[in-house]
Computed example of a mutant assay.
Amino acid sequence: MNETQIIDIARDGVMTMILVAGPILVVGLVVGLLVTLIQTVTSLQEQTLTFVPKLLATFFSLIFLLPFMMHEMTDFMQRMMDNIIALP
């Protein structure tokens, strides 16, 4: 195994990680920004108010996106097994 193969495997791993975790993080970010905007407009300065909506949005998006995430992880694992089999 040479450096090029190792870099390709690392790149594939990072891209899979971004594809799997990215949508959940974006949902949390958007919900957090919306709640913060609402807090700013209404002058509510409760710090714990952002926690519950972000938690619920993350939970529901996780349930909704779980098939996509499992498909991406399964494809990644299949590619890694193919790489292991192809080793000389």
Score class of each variant (00 low, 15 high):
residue 36 T to F: 14
residue 77 M to W: 15
residue 12 D to V: 03
residue 7 I to F: 15
residue 29 L to T: 08
residue 23 P to F: 06
residue 27 V to C: 07
residue 69 M to Q: 14
residue 26 V to T: 12
residue 79 R to C: 12
residue 35 V to E: 02
residue 34 L to P: 01
residue 20 V to Y: 04
residue 29 L to Q: 02
residue 82 D to N: 15
residue 82 D to C: 07
residue 76 F to R: 07
residue 60 F to I: 06
residue 62 L to T: 13
residue 73 M to Q: 13
residue 8 D to T: 12
residue 68 F to M: 10
residue 27 V to F: 09
residue 75 D to H: 14
residue 61 S to E: 03
residue 85 I to H: 08
residue 8 D to V: 09
residue 77 M to Q: 13
residue 67 P to H: 04
residue 31 V to K: 05
residue 32 G to T: 03
residue 2 N to Q: 07
residue 30 V to L: 12
residue 45 Q to K: 00
residue 76 F to I: 12
residue 16 T to L: 06
residue 16 T to C: 08
residue 47 Q to N: 13
residue 78 Q to D: 13
residue 88 P to W: 05
residue 63 I to C: 07
residue 3 E to D: 14
residue 74 T to L: 15
residue 7 I to V: 15
residue 3 E to K: 11
residue 71 H to I: 11
residue 66 L to M: 08
residue 42 T to F: 05
residue 86 A to Y: 05
residue 19 L to D: 09
residue 75 D to Y: 10
residue 63 I to D: 00
residue 41 V to F: 08
residue 37 L to F: 12
residue 50 T to N: 10
residue 28 G to Q: 03
residue 8 D to F: 09
residue 62 L to A: 10
residue 22 G to L: 02
residue 9 I to V: 12
residue 62 L to K: 00
residue 62 L to R: 01
residue 65 L to M: 10
residue 18 I to D: 03
residue 13 G to Y: 02
residue 58 T to I: 10
residue 75 D to V: 15
residue 53 P to G: 04
